[in-house]
Design a protein around this nucleic acid. Sequence first.
DNA 1: AGTTGTGAAGGTATTCACAGCG
DNA 2: CGCTGTGAATACCTTCACAACT
Lengths: 210, 210
Amino acid sequence: MGLPKPTAERLSQLARLLEQRGGKNAPLSSAEIEQLTGWPSHTVRKDISLLGIPPEASTTLGYAPALLARAIRERLGFAEKAHPCCVVGLGRLGSAFLDYEGFGDGPFTLVAGFDSNVNRLEILKADFPLYPTFKMKDVIGRLGIEFAVLCVPPAQAQAACDRLVECGIVGVVNFTPVILSVPHGIEVENVSIIDALGTLVARLAARSNQ
Amino acid sequence: MGLPKPTAERLSQLARLLEQRGGKNAPLSSAEIEQLTGWPSHTVRKDISLLGIPPEASTTLGYAPALLARAIRERLGFAEKAHPCCVVGLGRLGSAFLDYEGFGDGPFTLVAGFDSNVNRLEILKADFPLYPTFKMKDVIGRLGIEFAVLCVPPAQAQAACDRLVECGIVGVVNFTPVILSVPHGIEVENVSIIDALGTLVARLAARSNQ
DNA sequence: AGTTGTGAAGGTATTCACAGCG
DNA sequence: CGCTGTGAATACCTTCACAACT
């Protein structure tokens, strides 16, 4: 059986938080997690309970970070090897990811970049190969790429997204401010600065609930 | 009374979608909005109903885009004039926002940038002034900046965030992969590529609900 | 006919409260 | 004791079904 969506999202972040703490392998209590994340401790415990962790991962002092993180990753279906991803659109924003260090040893890696401007492909340097857009279908299929990071100009966003879906991409991280339409079954995560600011205002407004 | 948080977030996106359609002022039905966004039409209608729109904004053919968008913006507490925002950390990612066009005539504008590297400040060009970090308190107070876009390297993220909170910032758009701890009352929207990919996997995993 | 608008029903997630365990 | 783990209670959001309107 699957986890509730909000639970899955919290756990995914929790795993990252645990991994970020690096050395610190001292047990971490639900109360401390509340401190760090703002999620109430009972929500944290419930989430972990739904996860169904092995008994060694929790002691009378709290949770064992490394074991808990691994349990989460497994349960959420993160592959053993990294998930291959690609960047689409290598303008200022897209090219900022070519040497992005945030991936570390996490479960994702960039394995390809695409841009329709061939000149640009020649100028840019990256640790992975860059391709002209017309090779998209071929490359995505061959490398088994699952996710795309969309950084094209707004006017091309929907078209590029449609194309990615055709190529078999299953999830899109959308850095453009365009609201994308996708077929059922494809996940989009909006990550545009505009969206994020809008969400902040919306949440601050929702506060008036009391 | 306030709106439910999910409703507020959907409406915020809907407003953007309506504004993006620019010229098209033909009425838009809840069924068409479902097409574009994937939200079921009854959810759309319920959201709009909770919003409490003026009667002119809906006809027997659908909603009047411009009027609806304005009603949403007002209800969500978007100011008449733009909300002032700042970018903190002007590396590859942060500096990509210096000439970002996505803001258009929307409700947000960047009015300041900060970086601790003074050399970098001299090299970069922007439509708004850039400052060394030590002027943060002064500038944020003087310009009434409400939101910050955090693009510093991971190792400095929490410290920079703490500082922003001290300066009176009320919301942070977090482009770093670090999970930030903030005091109650401050909103953080995580917008890092890592987070977004994690969320995608989490959501795809949650599907196994059937 | 085709649309919105909304009370009522249903489903999901959060919160509570306490049992259970080291 | 202080912590986790979890059924039960609550609150919240979504979905339904149909009335009202043009």
